[in-house]
């Protein structure tokens, strides 16, 4: 990679009491890259994400985003630098309309009129215009996922973190989501965590595998998914 990195992480460690969830991880993401993160349950992927988004403060190590050392920053400040995150369990405004949810996300960065345009555009792009006036709390799980993805990209972040975006989506919804993500990835940097290998195959070029809080292997998607160790700790006998 000759492109300058947008994200550079050195020796990131996060401990909870006696449990070390993330254990000295080095990780570099080039500007404009899409990286998939896979690994067994409990490997530390979500903790890693939470350290990047500021929901957790790392125990040690450094997180450099665009030249700023953001370790220990509050979430809202990191978000303002241009980081958008979709959490594993959808985190949306259940008591507000879909439209309002996306508008609020866009409004942080844009003025009222622009935010409205951005919101309309996104709802169309996500194919959820018909749900605009529904309360998000009334929607099915996969639809809430889409709303949350809309909120994440509404303020045009430079780095997007998606934690299990395909969870709870049906086959062709996953395909549509993959197309959307590939499109987003043309302009932005992304890290995507998911367990759906069909989905990972649709979007990924490079994959990083976490195992027990460390990076097990990193590389091209075909090589990684064919790796014996990865099959052993993660994929099982499944053909992917």
């Amino acid at each position: 990679m000759t492109v300058a990195p947008i994200l550079e992480i050195r020796k990131l460690t996060k401990r909870f009491g006696g449990v070390t969830a993330v254990d000295g991880v080095d990780f570099t993401l080039a500007d404009g890259e899409l990286r998939c993160l896979i690994g067994p349950n409990g490997a530390g992927k979500s903790t890693f994400f939470n350290c990047l988004s500021g929901q957790l403060a790392p125990t040690s190590g450094a997180v450099h985003l665009d030249g700023h050392d953001i370790s220990g920053w509050p979430s809202h400040a990191i978000a303002r630098l241009g980081v958008g995150i979709k959490t594993q369990v959808p985190s949306v405004f259940d008591g507000l309309e879909v439209r309002e949810n996306v508008w609020l996300a866009a409004r942080r960065r844009y003025n009222a009129r622009e935010a409205k345009e951005r919101c309309d555009e996104l709802l169309t792009r996500l194919n959820i215009q018909s749900l605009a006036a529904h309360m998000v709390g009334e929607l099915a799980h996969g639809q809430r996922q889409l709303v949350e993805i809309g909120m994440v990209i509404a303020s045009d972040p430079r780095l997007i973190l998606l934690d299990e975006p395909a969870a709870g989506m049906s086959r062709d919804e996953v395909a549509r989501l993959a197309a959307l993500i590939s499109e987003i990835a043309r302009e932005r940097s992304l890290i995507v965590v998911d367990h759906d290998m069909r989905f990972i195959r649709m979007i990924a070029e490079t994959v990083t595998v976490f195992h027990q809080g460390r990076v097990l292997i990193e590389g091209e998607v075909d090589k990684v998914l064919a790796d014996a160790m990865v099959k052993d700790v993660y994929l099982g006998k499944q053909v992917v």
Binding site: S53, Q55, P74, S75, H76, A79, R80, G84, I85, T87, S91, V92, F93, D94, G95, L96, E100, W103, L104, A105, R107, R108, R109, A112, M151, S155
Partner: peptide, 23 residues
């Protein structure tokens, strides 16, 4: 905007924060 953000914080402070609003 202030008022709408306030309501969104009532709904889900975590999400408001992740959108870049200082709760």
């Amino acid at each position: 905007r202030f008022g709408r953000v306030l309501v969104s914080i009532r709904e889900n402070p975590l999400r408001a924060e992740l959108l870049g609003y200082d709760v």
